[in-house]
Design a protein around this nucleic acid. Structure first.
Lengths: 260, 260
DNA sequence: CGGAAATTTGAAATCGCTCAATGATAGTGG
DNA sequence: CCACTATCATTGAGCGATTTCAAATTTCCG
């Protein structure tokens, strides 16, 4: 995990070594955060984005009324804070959910990379589109399913992403407090507690401390009405561009493939 | 309105005439839809995206349980269906909310344009990031505010976008049925009716038939806890790239600027 | 060990949903 | 142009999910 994970750059486009090196040169600093530290607050000026090397970071939108919504839980390999580069003041607050390390990437450096390497640019674009699908599904989950279903869907989604990052088996550590979990699935902390108890009673999940074990993933997927999204690398975007070296560009990445 | 509106291409990057021409050459077909026609269904193969020339189109995610969530209401100038190009089967259903005209753009053509014109690519990327901010705010609205607040926020948001498209004044036509409105703000149709009545009782809005009149926009903005997002064109992305002609690249676009 | 934060539980209130029925409107074909 | 029909809007009543307020217990961290 000390090696930079370039998930978000290479998930749709296979990169050449020159491209990988260019990405690795983007960083101007490395930051270490402890749990609850704020990387950037909503309203702050936006000069940088961040590559999450290690740890978990939540992206939270604060509401005038005092509550907040965690619109994304970022895992290692994610590129953080990019949506805010389109606005004057950061749209969200980035907060560490556990001990975390990030690389700091100036927006100017990201822009230069984007304009000079078309295939990296395509990767960034497709990743952003994928995030939109993710947000669409989160919005649907919160708007149209009850608390137990949302929790089930969230656990499946996190587990799926951890599998892509190398996790094996149905068990993982969930560093979120119930307060933070409530922020994610759009309920109150008190109800998050009751919802956990209710979900455990179904027998589909077990938890002990911070450790979560998914007993019946298909059952959870059904309960949470998790849509079956099969993301894939697209020939159109890899086969074009200025680069002359050959690359394979057809392998599909199907997180929900246990289902098919 | 017969002229193509290129909102989504030019909102962050000022385009040269060569770039505009390349975009206009993308379309291979023009489709006319009447209200309730489906442009593309969730699960369909994704070969094209669509440029909305005239009309309104809803992007809906269906839930296994039978309900659906309209995750975006598209207005003229919007580029539709792009998030789905990252998945095997379309993530959403695109349905006409009134009489509508779209240009059909093959994904391959979009990819070629992206790989050959860096500044257009930057525009597409930034627009996609902006849509993520939009979705983050929608998610927050649905998760953290009540039905009246969501309706207020939705009306303000649509009005703001119509202003950018040339509308003048606080009045506009809302072609959505209450069923569709319920799909948008994440409630049931019956409750949408009561919510409209409740919002009208505040005196902040009036409606007669399909026509909506925002009596107190600031009041609605406060009620709906609408965040103040100021989108802006970024020097970083315009000033780079292969093009040699000069362009102004500093004008900010501030939809919510009445507030400041 | 001590204090702060997080978890858990109870009880009452509220918001939105469901079921059900009636009225209004608009599109269609004769 | 009108009648017919399907869709949409509206209202009532009861129910259920989630929130709110409050307090007790446990866990975590310095």
């Amino acid at each position: 995990m000390q090696k930079l994970s370039l998930h978000r750059f290479s998930e749709f486009v296979c990169l050449t070594s020159a491209e990988v090196q260019a990405i690795e040169r983007l960083s101007v600093d490395r930051l270490h955060l402890k749990r609850h530290d704020t990387l950037r607050s909503q309203g702050d000026p936006v000069r940088d984005v961040y590559l999450l090397v290690e740890g978990w970071v939540g992206s939270c939108v604060d509401v005038a009324t005092g509550t907040r919504q965690m619109v994304k839980v970022h895992l290692p390999g994610d590129l953080l804070g990019t949506p805010s580069i389109t606005v004057r003041a950061a749209a969200d607050t980035l907060v560490a959910l556990k001990r975390t390390t990030v690389e700091v990437i100036p927006v100017t450096a990201l822009a230069e990379l984007f304009m000079s390497m078309p295939r990296v640019a395509a990767g960034l674009y497709l990743t952003s589109l994928k995030e939109r699908v993710f947000l669409m599904d989160r919005l649907t989950s919160v708007a149209r399913t009850n608390a137990v279903q949302r929790l089930a869907a969230f656990l499946v989604s996190i587990h799926e992403r951890l599998l892509l990052a190398g996790l094996e088996g149905p068990q993982f550590d969930l560093p979120l407090s119930q307060i933070e979990l409530a922020d994610v699935i759009g309920i109150t902390p008190v109800h998050a507690n009751r919802t956990w108890a209710q979900l455990e009673r179904t027998g589909l999940v077990r938890r002990s401390g911070k450790t979560v074990s998914l007993v019946d993933i298909e059952g959870l997927r059904d309960l949470g009405a998790v849509p079956d999204r099969r993301f894939e690398r697209l020939r159109e975007w890899s086969a074009l561009g200025t680069d002359k070296s050959p690359w394979q560009a057809d392998r599909s990445v199907a997180p929900g493939s246990t289902r098919a």
